[in-house]
Nucleic acid binder design. Structure first.
Lengths: 155, 155
DNA sequence: TTGGCACTCATACTTTAGGGTGATTTTGAT
DNA sequence: ATCAAAATCACCCTAAAGTATGAGTGCCAA
């Protein structure tokens, strides 16, 4: 709050200063006959430059900053009983369906069997598994299962 | 390559058109005595608007939206408090080499990678895995890994 | 010394998994 | 109402996994 207000004020001050400098420049130029013939062109150029800068400033200021997800360390409870690690699951961005497929993978089912269990086609399971591997940054289902177990998102 | 060049060309064309329109507007205004007194102000306003737009366009176009999302979950190391179930292992009748292969399978390695690690050929690993599946009475490596985990003969 | 077992490797073949692309439908949130 | 993500499915192709069979070597115990 306070910082943004200060920032805006600083910008206003900057722009005022720039404008004053421009006016001063114009006055100076008016006194010089040599430059009088090019006064109009100079003026336009200055205006163009200044408002280009204004546009840049506007765009950079108004475009909302991108959200940066902070790194987080998630540790499993050292106990034997399983609790789903919601944080890790959320971090991976797996959808509900993808989690289902992953769990069946971990149980040792083939894609064909998973398709049968979930009443969808083999191709659908292939699509799901591809997205799972992509999101988990692995190449094979065994890697995915191993990682999922260590993350605590699968039994 | 080709697309960016085309895009730039399109932008150049757009700006040329805008500029031509502006000149035309000026000519029109010059013919109107009524507007002549405000011609300079109008001109400046137009230039300001156009170059503000240019600034916005520049900023949005040139500033690449690099959103670096650092998402990292720390998971359990492979062996936390694991105790090998000797009895289950003996009951399965797995040989030492077969257990090695099974453990690497559980870690998510491909047959080719396992072969490289154990300095043997891919075919040898295939033979081993076939015998493993036979002894464990499973069909797939994922099933073998799952069963091995539940039996406590693998991390 | 010999038969069984573990380990190795090969060839040939079938099945499953995975990558890439594109499309449609459902659903959820604004 | 509309836009984005999720979920569904298809086709094509390559890679990996798995099956079957046979075979050579070395080791150990009967």
């Amino acid at each position: 709050m306070a910082t943004s207000f200060l920032t805006i004020n600083k910008n206003i001050l900057f722009y005022s200063a720039a404008f004053a400098s421009l006016l001063l420049l114009l006055k100076l130029l008016e006194t010089q006959l040599l430059f009088t013939t090019y006064l109009f062109e100079l003026y336009i150029t200055a205006v163009a430059l200044i408002f280009t800068a204004l546009g840049v400033w506007l765009a950079l200021k108004l475009v909302q900053p991108k959200t940066v997800v902070v790194e987080k360390a998630v540790y499993l409870p050292a106990s034997a009983n399983f609790v789903l690690n919601e944080a890790a699951l959320a971090a991976l961005g797996l959808s509900h369906r993808e989690l289902e497929v992953l769990q069946l993978m971990a149980a040792g089912y083939s894609n064909q069997q998973i398709a049968g269990r979930l009443f969808v086609s083999l191709n659908t399971i292939k699509t799901h598994s591809s997205k799972i591997f992509e999101k988990m940054q692995v190449q094979r289902r065994t890697q995915a299962v191993d990682k999922a177990r260590r993350l605590g998102i699968v039994v």
